[in-house]
Design a protein around this nucleic acid. Sequence first.
RNA 1: CGGGGUGUAGCUCAGUAUGGUUAGAGUACCUGGUUUGGGACCAGGGGGCCGAAGGUUCGAGUCCUUUCACCCCGACCA
Length: 568
Amino acid sequence: MRRSKAFIPTTKEAPSDATLPSHIFLSRAGFITQVAAGLYNYLPLAKRVIKKIENIINEEMTKVGAQEVELSFVTPAELWQESGRIEKFGKELLRFHDRKNNLFVLGPTHEEMMVDVVRNRVTSYKNLPLNLYQIKTKFRDEARPRFGLMRGREFIMQDAYSFHATTEDLDREFDAMEAAYKKILTRMGLDFRVVEADSGAIGGNGSKELMVLAESGEDTIAVCSKCEYGANIEAASRSKRSNIPEAPEASFNKFKTPDVKTIDELAEFFKIDPYYTVKCVAKKVVYEDASEIVLFFVRGCDNLQEVKALNATEALDVVDVTEEELKETGLVPGFIGPLDQDKAKHVIDSDLKNATNLICGANEADYHFIGVDLSVLSDVAYFADIAEVNEGDICPHCEKGTLSFTKGIEVGHIFKLGTTYSKALKAEFLDENGKAQLFIMGTYGMGVSRLVAAVIEQHHDEYGCIWTKATAPYMVNIMISNIKDEAQVQAGEELYRQLQDANVEVILDDRKERFGFKMKDAELIGFPYTIVIGKELQNGHVQIFDRATKEKTDIKSEDIFDKIMELI
RNA sequence: CGGGGUGUAGCUCAGUAUGGUUAGAGUACCUGGUUUGGGACCAGGGGGCCGAAGGUUCGAGUCCUUUCACCCCGACCA
């Protein structure tokens, strides 16, 4: 491609509403333009990057035996009614009527459609397993799209769905897909972690997220210092503590603690470690047709993890509760404890099971219990893992390393679905015994357009994009420094032809612009290599500019072709 | 969906408190010339329903009402 003919509208200034590097640079470098909130146009450079990512995905999917399909973007609402997700997705589903007044939905994900494709077509265990995938535009009418390609309403996703006769076979496929996704990200040149994720309301027993590590990531993940363990903070767990502070031995008693309401005040009052206090977090838990106040108890040194709280109560939502609502129930904010109190349902963190030497609220203003032994509740109360892990906690996997937090961009999610959808949509096959069985399913997704942004979030500097070799829109940019210099033009054109003949993705900057202008442009776009054909040509040299290192290397002009072929 | 902010040239923004010539700058674009190793310079030029609708007024980018869009914080995000 000749730069003089290419549609790459670069700008010096970023759109004022762009905040993330990927958004700023993809806009400035002429990859994308915004259409409306969460809607973007992909210009030629972005389209090339997307195709590269899609090719890598296609190759790796083929290797694991997944077959590509393409399902209709517009999906009949009946399917969503059948699965019950028309309510669950709510306003995120973009709905509309056709001329015959039938209701349709723009596909936000395609479990229903895929099950519909397979049911009654695959009817025997002999035809299992089956893994079908597509790479397609999705639409989710998010309440607040943001961050450019990172969280658009319309986005490109690769989504795969596997069908199995047994859970063992699903496990095998799940592992194979995890390996394939890791391969894809590795090939793309990304630094990432596979982390354990919250399974969410959908249930199932296996869910992992693929996180590209980047400062701007929206997810917090806990990673181990010693082993491969990583988990989304929503799902992270920890090993029992080893360095437990000295216990404040005391016999059970009610103690006057005037105006001591917070954990800090309590720890200060008794001069003890917050580890031995019991924190109460009151929440309103919302179910389909009701809501109630639930008291969550964790150690004073811990915090409630709301997603875990949600899962523990199997509720639709967990929301804050006001002090007034608490008082109406007869609870005493600041002095709520798990003993002798039946005004609201309790959930107690499993770390408190059989815990001793505790101090907790006495459910009476200005009083706390001391010397509390919670083992009295071990058979009657509901215990669950509801505490958020802290940095420095011991890894639950290797039990040696400590956990630290880092930020990640969720670019992939793999999920053992089980029979959730086959059951809802009555999709069955006949097993060896001629007995009808529900398909056991897995679902796997990778955000293609989000990956474009993720590459830049991880690979950029103050001057612009730094594409990895596998994702670059063009591998080599040949820059003719002075377009009026015949020799430079000739050398540039010749190299351009040579590289084209060698099937190298090459762009020739033949514009009538000055050196600095073209250099800044190349840095902004982020071609891995720019070949500068300039002043040194009269001494028989050209230069290779490496975008990632910003190093310029002189090369004899006659060696340049070989050198490039060696580099790429 | 709650709270806040912004809409003026392709882009980034002044101008709006106190209404008053033909609405500005930088950048980008076009023409000519000079320049050619880090976003050049000179000269000339094109480009605007001041988000939309309604109102007040002799007169509205500016005041009033309504509305739409976009952005930020939060909630939300199988």
